[in-house]
Design a protein around this nucleic acid. Sequence first.
RNA 1: GCGAUCGUAGCUCAGUUGGUUAGAGCGCCGGUUUGUGGUACCGGAGGUCGGGGGUUCGAGACCCCUCGAUCGCCCCA
Length: 409
Amino acid sequence: MSKVETPRPIRGTQDIFGPDAEAFAFVVETFERVRKLYRFRRVEMPVFEKTEVFARSLGETTDVVSKEMYSFDDRGGESLTLRPEFTAGIARAYLTDGWQQYAPLKVATHGPLFRYERPQKGRYRQFHQIDAEIIGAAEPQADVELLCMADQLLKELGVADGVTLQLNTLGDADSRDSWRAALLAYFQAVRGELSEDSQDRLERNPLRILDSKDPRDQAFVADAPKIDEFLTAEAEDFFGAVTSGLDAAGVKWQRLDKLVRGLDYYRHTAFEFITDRLGAQGTVLGGGRYDGLMESLGGPATPAVGWAAGIERLAMLVEGVGEDVADWAVVVEDDATLGEATGALGAIRRAGMSAELFATGSPRKRFDKAVKSGARSIVSYAMRDGTIDRRIKAGDADGIRLVGALKES
RNA sequence: GCGAUCGUAGCUCAGUUGGUUAGAGCGCCGGUUUGUGGUACCGGAGGUCGGGGGUUCGAGACCCCUCGAUCGCCCCA
């Protein structure tokens, strides 16, 4: 017999276990609770879509589309793609499922996303996000509500300390276009002194030069044209309404005028909740307004705003969420008592208390295993003088609950 | 796609300038001790030192290749 080689897990996937899985679940549970407080409706979305859903909405030239998508042809020869984000699929559903009748529509979801990237701290090829969107709402109050929900979520997760909300506006389409043109002219003039990466960005996405980490670029970034110089009156009013709304709601924020979005469909509000506790991955939650998206999918002009947050990143910030110890350890110190112990195990669980059975390995060491498990209370079964001897090690209240539960059964 | 660091038992790690039969702790299994008890002791299973090639009398250690992981760049949650 030749040795069978164990298949390795796929790069960038995670097997989340134990305390990590508890932290993950805590993030999702907290999100579910908070989104109900804000009356966001739950949606479940397909994990894959036609490739064009993402290709059109994200823009063909973006890195996500050009090199980071998990795309494949199905048996009918159609190109499908594992979703790299939620927004495009939700926008597609809004158009194909008649959700326009519910506008303004507030929806929330969570689940796995896929991007073919190099894994590193807080970045995976299959990762998980929570997501919230408001579709069909043009007013800045929608942005404010979304940000308030994000702020409350982070507070209820207990990760708000050290996380700051960075806020910017990209203006409307006109503002953004003229800003972009000014940036292009400005950086073009000093092209030779920019980093190689930024010279490349000049062609593809000049806005991105603004958040370059290269010191050679940062000198020029400081004096680069600011979006504020190009905002139309409407865009300025919109941003003013968002910031005053946040102030009224008591949500702390900082203006970061170099904050831009990688994807083309963003307009007006852009924001990120940022921490310095996750290495190179500072963004814990990010989003913005994407008024241009629906049209790129062939739909009517539809204002929308949303955000998403990486569950793994949030889970890494969450502290003090571990696995619970059992309420009871049920110990079989003599195999002849297995039946009795099994009955007790069921009775305890039916009474709403958690219990774990210790009935394997050396009988003499089972009690020690139960003690080491950290269970709050222990009930053990042994044979003494031909009869079953039950011993309870518990606080008075717990012991009484146990005896009650056993009588009920 | 690029760069840096790192791969020794199930886990966390020792392993000297290259030198006998590769070790410890934890965990697991068995035994002795204890018996409202988290104790102590004894024993056992478990390793092609990530894989391949090279240098050398001799490689876990040095060199090359390869695979994998981690962190960073690009980009992004």
